[in-house]
């Protein structure tokens, strides 16, 4: 495959909602004959964990996120509770899990792929996963915490992967 077909993504976010864009773009890229590498660094490392159940949506500091009910009558589903609920309430234990659960329900209803399914498809399609070794050590992870097939390297390898490519995204 020629170099100009290469594409790279730097994945830096580790919440459940932001876990999707890198895997969606990467899997679509390989499906369209691109050679795709994702470089996971800082909180983006969460996306490579064997157990993704710890990934949550944070309702705090997520001001633009619409919060709508995935079930109930139509009028209820149309209401955006985001601006209506005081931020202080999101500090209640369990709020993150509740919001995450609601988002998962909404996604299932709309036929969006599950996170693990999307990640497996990336691997099946040979998307290259690189975990930033520096942040793996910084956050006290073991290599065994991550899914199989991940390579561990630094910023220099990112540049080697990115050389010649024409699509490079920071997420």
């Amino acid at each position: 495959m020629s170099d100009d077909n290469k594409m790279t993504i730097i994945a830096t976010k580790g919440t459940f909602d932001w876990a999707f864009p890198p895997f969606i773009i990467a899997s679509t890229g390989v499906a369209m004959d691109k050679e795709v590498t994702i470089f996971f660094t800082f909180y983006g490392l969460n996306l490579l964990l064997k157990d993704t159940s710890k990934l949550k949506v944070s309702p705090i500091g997520n001001p633009a996120m619409p919060m709508k009910m995935p079930f109930g009558p139509k009028w209820l589903q149309k209401i955006d509770f985001g601006p209506k609920i005081p931020n202080v309430l999101w500090n209640i234990p369990g709020a993150e899990s509740l919001v995450t659960w609601l988002m998962q329900k909404t996604m299932a209803k709309h036929g969006v792929a599950k996170l693990d399914e999307l990640r497996s498809m990336c691997q099946e399609f040979d998307v290259k996963f690189i975990a930033c070794e520096m942040t793996v050590e910084l956050f006290g992870y073991d290599r065994e915490d991550f899914v199989d097939g991940v390579e561990f390297a630094g910023a220099a390898m990112y540049f080697d992967e990115a050389a010649g490519g024409d699509h490079h995204l920071y997420m």
């Binding site: 969606i24 899997s27 679509t28 499906a31 369209m32 036929g111 969006v112 792929a113 399609f125």
Partner: peptide
């Protein structure tokens, strides 16, 4: 049917 982006493309591939 019923699947959303990017699944139709991935399954087509």
């Amino acid at each position: 049917s019923g699947l959303n982006c990017p699944l139709p493309i991935l399954k087509t591939k």
